[in-house]
Amino acid sequence: MSVARTIIAAMLLVAAPALLAGEIPQDARHSGYSFMGPDTRAMQDDDTSNPGMLFVLDGEALWKTRSGSAGRACADCHGDARESMKGVAARYPAFDKALGRPVTLDQRINLCRANHQQATPLSHESRDLLALSAFVAHQSRGVAITAGDDPQLKPFVEQGRALFVQRQGQLNLACTNCHDDNYDKHLAGAPVTQGQPTGYPLYRLEWQTLGSLERRLRSCMSGVRAQAFDYGAPELVALELYLMARARGMPMESPAVRP
């Protein structure tokens, strides 16, 4: 490691946010992967059996396909995604200067379509949007999560944390009640997990398809019988941002497989 790199690494350590009460310390953070059985792990580990890789392949084709009235493909601006997209998903949701707020990777793809391809937005959880986001996120596989490091994101990370610890829904439960306080336990026989979003978009066997973190969050909200935030709602983006910031330093696994 060069001197400059050492200095940068030291600065990052200093800049790392202090742990808040109830938060899981870095060395105790575990991906949902570690809560799964050997069969599901094997399915994720082998690219030929990981169903998420079919979406990655579709995404790679879409990356090179011209779209919209501008007649441009993602690759026309961004080139080889293996280079240009490496580490990008690990820092999303990211601050958008024009909007003055964080946007998810899915929202970034649609902003790119609107602004640079003059193309219509892809709808939430559509095959094409999941394929593109899976392809982009796959380029960050193994990269440590750094989302939330941008100081401009601080109030939004705090908003997400406030939502994470707020009890909600008819069952009156906060995310933190299960995913900080009880991740070593079981809900109806299934491991609770820490809710570390390291592998999105991911293939969930229960869904029989790939899905976004927003879909998972909305499903958890329905689980506690709360009115789920709409896709793309600022609250849902803030929650996603907080979860990514909470998983700081954990390696990306996209596309992961989960039960």
């Binding site: 707020q166 009890r167 909600q168 829904g169 008819q170 009156n172 329905s222 019988r225 709360a226 009115q227």
Partner: peptide
């Protein structure tokens, strides 16, 4: 005293 209860469940 509940927050953001699902629309179809509010008040129940």
């Amino acid at each position: 005293g509940l927050v953001r209860v699902g629309r179809n469940l509010a008040g129940k």
